[in-house]
């Protein structure tokens, strides 16, 4: 299996993530879309690392991203919970207090 296969999976995953972020009317799905994009990036990191010598930097980045994603998901879910408390909705467009 060559590098192209990894990148194709990653690209598909990225595309799904983007659509998920832009199109879904639910913050949870948006978060999940973000996770997918991050994971698409992780796949690329790991794949490029695998086909590009012995250096560990790609893998290190992937681990770093995973950790960040976990932290981010925790914070984001907290925000979503608060948004839900405040607006009784988790649609991204409903939290519009600062609009205009």
């Amino acid at each position: 299996m060559g590098l192209g296969a990894y990148i194709a999976v990653s690209a598909v995953l990225f595309a799904i993530g983007v659509v998920c972020i832009v199109a879904r009317r639910n913050m949870i799905y948006v978060l999940m879309g973000i996770e997918m994009i991050l994971n698409a990036a992780n796949i690329n990191f790991v794949a490029f690392n695998r086909f590009n010598g012995d250096a560990m930097d790609g893998r290190m980045f992937a681990i770093f991203v995973i950790i960040l994603a976990a932290a981010e998901a925790a914070v984001a879910l907290g925000i979503v919970l608060n948004v839900y408390h405040l607006f009784e909705s988790i649609k991204p467009g409903d939290a519009d207090l600062m609009r205009d």
């Binding site: 983007v18 972020i21 832009v22 199109a23 948006v30 991204p92 467009g93 600062m98 609009r99 205009d100």
Partner: peptide, 13 residues
């Protein structure tokens, strides 16, 4: 500047 994150995101995309 709609304040809609998803819009922003789509613009970004």
């Amino acid at each position: 500047q709609t304040g809609r994150i998803q819009q922003y995101a789509s613009f970004a995309v």
